[in-house]
Design a protein around this nucleic acid. Structure first.
Length: 342
DNA sequence: AACACGGGGTC
DNA sequence: GACCCAGTGTT
């Protein structure tokens, strides 16, 4: 009976783990959460690195640890303080979740150490549970993120199609788990992800530098064929926004606490938030057209200059002094646009 | 399983 | 423009 690619790999597990770990111990990047790691730094880095690349998260991580160095400090911080430190990183639910998590931990008699307990905490899913418990508590649980899916699909030359990354992670979880080095699961997990980030790139992987190329079926064909993810179609949206400055104040929209997204975040108001007709708007100055893509939406945002607006505005519209913009929380793109246009 | 999330980077 | 990134939560 011929072995499957997964069985073959698992058969050579020990040699695979040793080659991977040897490589990691000489090639791991020096990152702030790897220097004198603590549970707090590990948790914070994992939250920041959800859907965000290391290079982007790095300055935020330093600022955050300076301002809120412990779970205790974080648990006592105001929501505004927390959101301000996250300003520009996007996916603001993560900031609200780690804030809730800190409050929950501080209220507990002791820090939970089991995967089951961590999975219950806000913003902690299967990946983050595995990352935190393996790194901080030596729990032998495999992290299966985008990097690991890419590595496992290439190692086994698996060309199964997936509709989304969550489905792919679920599919590869058993193989990932079978390969975990139970002596050092934290470094094993980090090594897998480090390999994906620095060698086994999505495009042009550097197989010649790979410590586990001898275990890899994918390198013998075209590794870029794996994994196979079906594309989603991009939906286009057109948004009209208002640029209105009066007596040194700029008109902004603040999403209410109940808002599904961007709760507490300020942005340039849209045409309908200000209550102006589309024809009136198009009769005014078009300042600039901005395009950005987020998840499956491409947004084209046209910003129009308005010299005046109605006296009576809805309460979520606020006038903010241009020299006091640092006191409110802006989404990253809007912050940059305002700096650019003001 | 599909989608929302409303940011950023790379080729 | 397509696709990815140390994903989670909701439906």
């Amino acid at each position: 009976m011929a072995k499957t690619a997964s069985e073959e790999l698992i058969f050579h597990k020990k040699a695979f783990q040793e080659a991977l770990l040897r490589w990691y111990h000489t090639h791991a990047r020096v990152l702030p959460w790897r220097i004198e790691p603590t549970l707090y730094k590990t948790v914070l880095s994992e939250f920041m690195l959800q859907q965000t690349q290391i290079k982007t998260a790095l300055p935020y991580f330093h600022r955050w640890v300076d301002e809120l160095p412990t779970f205790e400090a974080l648990s006592k911080a105001t929501p505004e303080k927390v959101l301000k430190l996250w300003e520009g990183l996007g996916y603001y639910t993560r900031a609200r979740n780690i804030h809730k998590l800190a409050k929950a931990l501080v209220a507990m008699p002791q820090i939970p150490k089991t995967p089951e307990a961590w999975l219950e905490l806000p913003g902690v899913g299967p990946y983050t549970t595995a990352a935190i418990t393996s790194i901080s508590f030596k729990e032998p649980l495999a992290c299966v993120d985008g990097n690991v899916v890419r590595i496992l699909s290439r190692l086994t030359a698996n060309s199964r199609e997936f509709t989304d990354s969550a489905t792919a992670s679920k599919y590869f979880a058993p193989l990932g788990q079978a390969l975990v080095n139970t002596d050092n699961p934290g470094d094993h997990n980090q090594a897998m992800m480090e390999l994906g980030a620095t060698v086994c790139h999505r495009r042009s992987p550097e197989c010649l530098l790979c410590p586990v190329k001898n275990f890899c079926k994918g390198t013998k064909e075209n590794p870029e064929n794996f994994p196979k993810l079906t594309q989603k179609k991009i939906e286009k949206k057109e948004i009209y926004r208002i640029w209105c400055i009066k007596d040194g104040n700029i008109l902004l929209h603040k999403a209410t606490a109940k808002a599904k997204r961007l709760s507490g975040i300020h942005e340039l108001p849209t045409q309908d938030q200000v209550g102006i007709s589309e024809s009136d708007l198009k009769a005014s100055d078009l300042i600039v057209k901005k395009v950005r893509t987020i998840t499956r939406f491409q947004m084209v945002e046209s910003i129009y200059r308005l010299s005046r607006v109605k006296k009576k505005l809805k309460p979520d519209l606020v006038w903010v002094p241009l020299n006091k913009l640092s006191t409110v929380i802006l989404s990253g793109p809007h912050k940059r646009w305002i700096e650019e246009l003001a």
